[in-house]
């Protein structure tokens, strides 16, 4: 009967596809889920270093790129085997809460202040980063903030604090977006914006925006790798995650990070073992 055949085919197809989907997912068990930040993913760093790690160990690293706040939350709930983020204060708190057992500085890059080429707030002549932020607040020119509790957002808020400004008002626009969308929006409304250098260099849709201020130590952006607590989340792949963590701070891993260039620029500077994380 036609109806039966039709329903039968439909059911068969559905089951076959459900199995195929599952098979694809379980193909390779030697992988870890790494919660990391959008900046590391979007700058292309992972595309460059993950194949080298895979060659050395046979382990696939599956990157879930989210804001630092969400990355912490994923790890807290036991959904990530490993963490690579850039919020030193948050990372230390994470260890104190007992969710992670060890933190290692891995690399740094820096934040840059970007704005329209005419520079209406004249931040290019600022003495330091705090002065640049104060000038933006004085001029009340549009500033696009991530507003998403990411590592970059947290760093930006600390800089406002050091400038003695409580940002708010019509010129201060909290977008609640990742770095890329924030740059897209800033380009659209000729706003000032703070970005990590890696995302900026990899970013194409710049329109009138350019780097106006950089180089201050206060704009230092440290990345750290965390070992998640085995006690809290015994189900995670701690052995594989430990191999990844140790590879990152090994000579090979550090070299792989140093070798990554985009448009002839080195974007991340390895500094494992150095005491420069505060």
């Amino acid at each position: 009967m036609t109806i039966k055949r039709f329903v039968g085919t439909l059911a068969g197809l559905g089951l076959a596809m459900a199995f195929a989907t599952n098979a694809a997912a379980e193909e390779d068990e030697r992988f870890i889920n790494l919660a990391s930040t959008t900046s590391t993913e979007q700058s292309g760093l992972f595309d460059a270093i993950l194949p080298q790690f895979k060659e050395a160990t046979g382990i696939d690293v599956r990157v879930v790129a989210v804001g630092t706040g969400q990355a912490f939350e994923l790890a807290r709930r036991g959904d990530a085997d490993s963490l690579l983020v850039h919020d030193t204060a948050g990372e230390k708190a994470f260890i104190e809460e007992g969710y992670a057992t060890e933190r290692q500085p891995v690399m740094y890059n820096d934040f840059v202040l970007i704005g329209p080429g005419e520079d209406p707030a004249d931040i290019a002549d600022a003495d330091d980063a705090a002065d640049a932020f104060a000038r933006i607040a004085d001029a009340e020119v549009p500033f696009a903030s991530r507003g998403d509790d990411s590592g970059t957002n947290r760093a930006e808020l600390r800089l406002w604090e050091s400038a003695g400004v409580d940002p708010g008002g019509e010129w201060y626009r909290e977008l609640g977006s990742g770095m890329g969308p924030t740059l897209n929006t800033a380009a659209g409304m000729d706003a000032y914006v703070m970005s990590d250098r890696a995302t900026w260099v990899a970013f194409d849709n710049r329109q009138d925006l350019e780097i106006l201020f950089d180089g201050d130590e206060a704009l230092f952006n440290q990345y750290g790798s965390l070992l998640i607590s085995e006690e809290r989340h015994p189900h995670l792949k701690h052995d594989l995650a430990k191999q990844w963590h140790e590879w990152l701070i090994s000579a090979d891993g550090q070299q792989a990070i140093a070798d990554y260039e985009l448009d002839g620029q080195q974007l991340f500077f390895p500094n494992a073992g150095e005491n420069g994380d505060d």
Binding site: N33, Q42, A65, G178, M179, G180, A202, F203, D204
Partner: peptide, 20 residues
Amino acid sequence: NIDGVTRVMTTAIVLETNKG
């Protein structure tokens, strides 16, 4: 949106938009 595992058309579009 894991590269090669769970990246589909729509999430790839979002990623490329984010990269500008």
